[in-house]
Amino acid sequence: MEKKPAEKKAAPILVQMGIFAAILFVSSLISSLFPASFVVPTPLIGMVILYILLATHIVKLEQVEKFGDLMISLIAFMFVPSGIQLAGSLGLMKREGLQDIIVSVIATIIILVVIAYVGALIIKIHQKITGRTDDEEESEKGGN
């Protein structure tokens, strides 16, 4: 990603982990307030809190960046146990595993198409209403 020309000194890694741990702790408390029928997972709350803290400059980018980037760079590996978890549901997989796989693949394409085109439509409507044709459309013509 783009880096600012004047790189500020990163906070010590333990401090960065401390910020993550504090936010996750608070998030887990908030998460427990929601009923079982409306689950709001801890990492989701953590994500929102971290974004708010960054946007309000209470937490600076250089205080969380190094640890956060490390975590994101390892995320594919961290998904391994959730994948292997299927070993505990092999009965279900035997019954409808193939269908599950096909539906997952089709679902991916559905999500891509629907979100992309709804987004395109909303942007176009928004631009019609405000009458603004900003750089978005101009660069579109040059882009292809």
């Binding site: 990603m1 993550f20 990492p43 994500m47 980037d69 994101i72 995320i75 146990p81 292997i84 070993a87």
Partner: peptide
């Protein structure tokens, strides 16, 4: 076998999805 031998270690790695998912706020803020 999964429950008895794999899960104890798997759960530790899985836990780190919490800070990793939370970290998605950083690319958004950038």
């Amino acid at each position: 076998v999964y429950k008895a031998y794999y899960k104890p270690g798997g759960d530790i790695i899985f836990w780190f999805l919490n800070p990793a998912t939370m970290a998605f706020a950083i690319p958004l803020y950038r």
